[in-house]
Amino acid sequence: MAGTSGTAGPTEQAPPREPDWEGVRLHVVSGKGGTGKTTLAAALALALAAEGGRTLLIEVEGRQGIAELFRIAALPYEERRIATVTPAQLGLPGTGHGEVHALAIDTEQALLEYLEMFYKLGRAGKALQKVGFVDFATTVAPGVRDVLLTGKACEAARRKGPDGRRRYDAVVMDAPPTGRLTRFLNVNSEVAGLARIGPIHSQAQAVMRVLRSAETAVHFTTLLEEMPVQETVDGIAELRESGLPVGGVLVNMVRPPILDAAAVAAADGDHREEVALALGEAGLGGRSRKPETVRANVDPLLEPLLEQAREHAERVELERSQRVDLQQLRLPTYELPLIGEGVDLAGLYRLAGELKRQGAA
């Protein structure tokens, strides 16, 4: 399976793979809450920029998660550079000096921008803002809000500079969670009942042309746990039914192997005597040579160790079964390591290196 790192977990010394997503300019990242969606979207943006590219990382939920990750002030409604990146920073060979820019889309500002662009409202638009029209419009017609949010990302993905070149080599959108994703992306059907002609209708169609094109890929973040994997499977099925392009699966927080296969298999049995003997031989029974003294010192350690071994064996079996479910999707799959005490900037760059190494960027 393309991009997968197998059952042994991420391998930091593996040589980089060829990228799986050549030609994709808009990477949409979704996933169940708690799977690290924003973190992996940011890591993907870094990985895509590593060899001298320029990426735009877009946040659409108003949580300022990007600012928190990069340890910067809250992002305004404007594109600004938040990071630079080189292959060396990701632990990879190569040259280049890339940039990551970020944008936190404010729905209110996006609607005012839209009204100015298509209707030339200017000051009248600000007056509408004061009387609460903007909140009313986006609450009563959430499809309009989604057109504005997705439209901004699609515009950025296709925007060109004065020299005729694309402003950004790639755009990464930190999208809503899996449960709301298909409705969020399928803006054409969401606004069909609101506007069958006019600028909103045209904008929705333009957005869908980008979202359904080969320039877009929708990636899913998950953990090797039942609920996130099932939500991923369901989300991918919904996306396929809607004709939207499915990308890869980013498996986050993969634990490193602790016991080998034989030890995992043995953990289910009753091995108190063997473990007690091994602990004694390792010197954990104290200095005394008397068997009864050694055993008295070892016994308090036995049950906690055996319980941990059983829990680990159960976890390994759960992860194995979830990997089987993910393999049946037949999609490129990338495994990212569990980073102990949360992800700091160093950890973010480490994850970006893993994504680059495994061919996600």
Rank of each mutant, 00 (worst) to 15 (best):
P142K: 13
Q129N: 12
G62Y: 15
Q109D: 12
L90Q: 00
E12C: 11
Y114S: 11
I82W: 00
E319N: 09
I72N: 05
M117K: 10
E61M: 14
E108G: 09
K130N: 07
P76N: 02
A296R: 10
L348W: 00
A262T: 07
I72M: 03
V28I: 06
K32F: 09
L211M: 01
L56A: 08
D268L: 10
P337I: 08
S288L: 06
I66A: 06
D260P: 15
P76G: 13
L44F: 03
L90C: 01
P10L: 09
A47F: 00
V275S: 07
W21K: 03
H201D: 09
R196H: 05
L318V: 14
G91R: 00
Q89K: 01
D268H: 12
S213K: 13
E225M: 07
L121E: 06
L181Y: 15
A361D: 13
H271T: 11
E274N: 14
V275E: 06
T333R: 15
L57G: 05
V254T: 01
A156N: 01
L185V: 04
L351F: 03
D325H: 01
S5G: 02
D260M: 11
A361G: 15
E307M: 10
H312R: 13
A8T: 14
V187T: 10
Y349K: 05
V24W: 06
H271C: 04
A88L: 00
P162D: 02
A49F: 08
A237P: 11
D325L: 09
L112A: 07
A110T: 04
V246C: 10
S321G: 06
R310M: 14
A41L: 11
P304A: 09
R158L: 04
G3S: 13
G143L: 13
A83L: 03
R63A: 12
A67G: 15
L301C: 13
D234Q: 10
I105Y: 07
I66K: 05
E341W: 02
E22A: 08
V233S: 06
G269T: 13
L148C: 10
A137R: 13
A265N: 05
E273C: 10
R320D: 12
P93I: 03
E274M: 12
R158A: 12
R255V: 03
E314W: 04
P176D: 11
R323H: 13
F184Y: 15
L259G: 04
K32Y: 12
R315D: 13
V85H: 00
V85E: 00
E281T: 01
D234I: 04
K290L: 15
V343L: 03
